[in-house]
């Protein structure tokens, strides 16, 4: 067995989970939802094993580095983080239906990584050989993953809330939308996910700054990646303030959350693919 086999298992599992979640929404059968979650766990364990194995493989090649060293590795780690956050939310809030809107992000990451990213294990350039890299990437990605969940939940919210308003006088909502959690719960989950993502992103920015200072003597140099992480941080800070103190709920914060995730994805991928900078991923 090697890591690439396990990565295949992971991709297939996330795809299957996604399909079964959709079946769950249409069939309204509880045991189908349970099966979907079970498949998520299988995929998550395979994903974990694959990352661990790649670590061992890199060491065997003489590279003492965590498996977070290039775009391929970071994308599969992103998928892993999304599953981590999703499964924690599933254990805590038991809202199965949101899987249908969150797992696609993880599947999208895996399929993209496997189809078009370079999976060779290459050594790190000296500037990136540091434990700070590991702390920095882990904190950032848990933050990104929480924002992904918040975005998925916000999309569900926007779909559901219109229907709810119309249906209020008539019969309760049936069909697929009937399987969605109520808009109040979705709104709350959006906010809960951002409450996890925001401190994680804060830690990610701080560890990044600490590392830059340790390696180059400047904790902040306004390079595009740093600046974009700050932009994302500003957006979610605005979200929290709007929510805490101006009592924004509902559509506006749902849009803000989707918008924030779009900025997150740009910070993660767009900066490297579109703009130039110091960060090596995708370089």
């Amino acid at each position: 067995m090697n890591s690439s086999l396990l990565f295949n298992v992971t991709t297939v599992a996330y795809f299957a989970a996604m399909v079964v979640f959709i079946v769950y929404l249409t069939s309204a059968n509880k045991s189908v939802g349970f099966v979907a979650t079970l498949i998520c766990w299988v995929g998550f364990i395979a994903n974990t094993g694959a990352i661990g194995m790649r670590w061992v493989e890199a060491y065997a090649m003489g590279y003492e580095q965590a498996p977070l060293s290039n775009l391929y590795e970071s994308v599969v780690f992103f998928s892993w983080s999304i599953l981590l956050i999703y499964l924690i939310f599933d254990l805590k809030y038991k809202q199965r239906a949101i899987g249908a809107f969150v797992i696609p992000f993880a599947f999208g990451g895996m399929i993209w990584a496997q189809w078009s990213l370079d999976a060779t294990i290459a050594p790190l350039v000296p500037a990136l050989q540091s434990n700070w890299l590991t702390y920095h990437v882990i904190t950032c990605f848990i933050g990104y993953a929480a924002f992904a969940l918040a975005c998925g939940v916000s999309i569900m919210y926007l779909i559901k809330v219109g229907k709810e308003e119309k249906a209020a006088e008539e019969s309760p909502i049936g069909g697929i939308l009937g399987m969605f959690p109520s808009s109040k719960v979705l709104d709350d989950l959006n906010y809960k996910a951002i409450m996890i993502g925001f401190p994680m992103l804060t830690l990610g920015i701080i560890t990044g700054a600490a590392w830059a200072n340790y390696a180059w003597g400047t904790y902040w140099s306004w390079d595009p990646k740093e600046t974009w992480s700050l932009i994302v941080w500003f957006i979610y800070a605005a979200f929290l303030h709007a929510r805490f103190t101006r009592g924004w709920v509902g559509r506006r914060v749902a849009w803000l959350s989707i918008f924030g995730f779009a900025a997150t994805i740009f910070c993660y991928l767009g900066v490297n693919l579109v703009l130039s900078g110091l960060h090596s991923y995708g370089g």
Binding site: P224, T227, L230, I231, F234, A238, H241, R246, A263
Partner: peptide, 16 residues
């Protein structure tokens, strides 16, 4: 506060 945060976020894009 909210307007400043959003302005800081949008203007920061220029330099990137």
């Amino acid at each position: 506060a909210i307007i400043t945060l959003i302005l800081l976020a949008t203007t920061s894009i220029i330099g990137t």
